[in-house]
Amino acid sequence: MTAVAASPAHPWTADPYAAALRAGHGPLYLLRADGARLPLDVARWCARPDAADLSVLDRCRGEILDVGCGPGRMVAALARAARPALGIDTAPAAVARTRASGGTALLRSVFQPLPAEGRWGSALLVDGNIGIGGDPSALLRRVAAVLEPGGLLIAETAPDPVDERFEVRLAGAAGAFGEAFPWARVGPAALGALARRGGWRPVDRWTVDGRAFSALRRGAR
């Protein structure tokens, strides 16, 4: 397939990303300017939730917003359990796959107006989505505005002690495509420090199968 350049504002709408979701597997990467590749585990995203995912879902309470839901495995699992949940994603192919799997999803960025703002009980930022926008502090402020007072955010972090901001491009077997866009990686300690400065209260931290998670409580506005 010929690569089609993505809009800088919507890099995840590029055809190779959509093709990977339709196929259910990669290879797909985030390619840094220094040549380093961050693998995107499309096959896991398109499978049923694994033990690490279930450890997240078991901790959620109330109505759940999955930010950057991808192909929707978490939202679909919640729907099967009759738990109220909504996924949002900027990729039409991701939203379509979420809906096809039985989940509810909107084609929306977290930084756009969302339904029930200020009333969500839990929010998810898994699969590296704490990196959205390249500014975790701004993302935490936005999620705080979406959650109800005392609401829970569960974020998946890098397992190692990193705190970095950089630009990336999507890349597959045929090379890179689309425009560069900002991304971030933070480890558990870095996220905890950012959260405390932003008025969040860290309440839990755990790892499953090498994946690291942190749970944060939203403070009063």
Rank of each mutant, 00 (worst) to 15 (best):
A6P: 12
W12F: 15
T13H: 07
A14I: 10
A14K: 04
D15W: 08
A20K: 05
A20H: 08
A23S: 14
A23I: 09
G24C: 06
P27W: 11
L31I: 08
R32W: 10
R32D: 10
G35P: 09
A36G: 15
L38F: 15
P39N: 09
P39I: 08
L40H: 08
V42L: 07
V42N: 11
W45Q: 11
A47E: 15
D50A: 12
D53F: 05
L54F: 05
S55C: 09
L57F: 03
L57M: 06
C60D: 06
R61P: 05
E63S: 05
E63F: 06
E63K: 05
D66E: 06
C69K: 04
G70I: 01
P71N: 05
M74R: 14
A77S: 11
A82S: 13
A82T: 04
P84K: 03
I88D: 02
T90W: 07
A91H: 07
A93C: 15
A105D: 00
L106I: 01
L107M: 03
R108Y: 08
S109H: 13
F111E: 04
Q112M: 06
P113H: 02
P113Q: 03
E117P: 06
S122L: 03
D127W: 12
G128R: 01
G133V: 04
G134W: 07
A138Q: 08
A138C: 10
R142P: 01
A144P: 03
A145M: 05
G151C: 02
G151R: 00
L153V: 04
A155G: 05
D160G: 06
D160P: 06
F177W: 14
G178I: 00
G178D: 01
A180K: 00
W183T: 08
V186K: 04
V186S: 06
P188L: 05
G192P: 02
G192E: 13
R196C: 11
G198T: 06
P202N: 04
V203N: 03
V208T: 12
F213M: 10
A215R: 12
L216S: 10
L216M: 07
A220V: 13
